[in-house]
Design a binder for these strands. Structure first.
Lengths: 259, 259
DNA sequence: TATGAAGTGTGCGATGGCGCACACATCCTT
DNA sequence: AAGGATGTGTGCGCCATCGCACACTTCATA
């Protein structure tokens, strides 16, 4: 395992200091320099697709704000979310494992920004940047754990728990307590009917944990939400912590250096 | 992407010719030589655990015959299968992504054999063996796709389809039409009640697709089983083919060289 | 400030799978 | 050949979620 020095001690590049993506922020300055010129800032709008299922992965996205869903498209046309990607991660990393095409659809759930790099350029940089490579592979692993936990969760846990888990994950990744999310959208992500979400959300609302207002959902009681969620939230967060340090989703400046 | 020469043209090592594990078999002779001395043949008994959830991954297993389940352990004690590993793969590869502990339990479902190597030795070899590294990363990706598809499948597909899918996967990995599998065991894997499996299996049996005989299940009509299964089987198999060539589960000697 | 669009709450019959229980069949052992 | 252990089929009430439908509320905009 590589020992990464605290990123904060090596930031001559002014852009580096403003990057919120955890992986980029954690890079030592010399590696950031290698990649910085190849990154293009892009704004992500709600509903925008970054990768289409089955199509080549031409760009990789270091998410900086907002978050992205990875969705498996079933043949009956129903999409189903398998994982969330926020500023802690990257959409399209599977190119580093040798994939050329995307097995999932990645699309923006909450508008934000990202740094885009071409697949070819990323591979070039990675060949010269062992810290970056190590961070990306670790992220790949954590994402895999998230997906695996989702598989178990989908089979075993009731919607109320799954909804709470999903809201926690969304809250972590967006960083704000008020999210622009319709029940319709959440229903698609969780693969259930919208009216079923309505009932589950109503229960959380009556318990004073969240408030729903026409496309905006506000998290009132984070702890209450954690209690309402299944273990799956914590299982994934803890795997993240064990590979990336103690504060997976806080702003990079507040984060302990990676171990 | 590395261009791998056909393994068959480079087999001075007599052991190499007998290896059924697809990854080892696909290695060029010089790389096989690097790893061969560090591999220890082990027999795997039904129910044997290779890795415990949460515990360090000390050994990595190149499965040679039989197959392994990767299971997520939920806090209520219920295990749930997230993926199958046969001679096409390896149990414990996540060490190459930087994981130190196993997030899943891996255990033997059908007795067989494997080649074991310590994590430390594998990492050493991989540093000098680019083909091996490439193959292992590609396998990691394909396994990830399997898990992702399982997440969607668990949420959307009915047990009859899931059972058929699972039997196909087991059939592929074991290579034999008669499997020693109780309904009890399958029920645990799929996360449902045993009696629910009994009903679904009864339907397949009435359709003449399988036969059940006290812990032995015989696949009578492979095509019928494929028709009864959901798309998820084919989705995973096709991802495998796109990364490893046309014949994922046949014996290595019948397999086209990797592209 | 009226109107429509978007989003949310609710109702009702249907159904897949749960939880539990038990009978029956097959195999192994003695 | 008898008896126990293991494995399979079935029944019944229950519940979460489905599928569909509709009313109500909030917001944006003309």
């Amino acid at each position: 395992m590589l020992e990464l020095p605290p990123a904060e001690q090596h930031v001559p590049n002014p852009i580096h200091a403003t990057v919120r993506n955890r992986i980029l922020a954690a890079l030592p300055a010399e590696e950031f320099k290698l990649i910085a010129g190849k990154l293009h800032r892009v704004e992500l709008a709600l509903g925008q697709s970054l990768h289409r299922a089955g199509e080549p992965i031409e760009q990789v996205f270091f998410v900086d704000s907002g978050f992205i869903s990875a969705l498996t498209m079933l043949s009956d046309g129903a999409p189903l979310e398998i994982g969330l990607i926020g500023a802690e991660g990257v959409a399209g990393v599977s190119v580093l494992l040798g994939a050329t095409n995307s097995y999932s659809e990645t699309m923006c759930q909450t508008a934000g920004g990202a740094y885009r790099i071409t697949t070819a350029e990323l591979k070039e940089v990675v060949a010269q940047a062992p810290h970056l490579r190590d961070l990306l592979l670790r992220y790949t692993h954590v994402f895999h754990v998230q997906v695996a936990q989702t598989a178990a969760c989908n089979a075993h846990h009731e919607l109320g728990q799954r909804l709470a888990r999903w809201l926690l994950a969304a809250h972590d990744r967006s960083g704000v307590a008020e999210l622009s999310l319709t029940q319709d959208l959440i229903a698609v992500m969780l693969g259930v009917r919208r009216s079923t979400v309505s009932i589950a959300a109503g229960t959380l609302q009556k318990a004073g944990v969240i408030r729903y207002q026409h496309g905006r959902i506000t998290i009132l009681d984070r702890v209450g939400l954690e209690n309402a969620a299944c273990e799956c939230y914590e299982a994934v967060a803890s795997e993240y912590r064990s590979l990336f340090g103690e504060h997976p989703f806080e702003s990079p400046s507040a984060v302990a250096p990676l171990a």
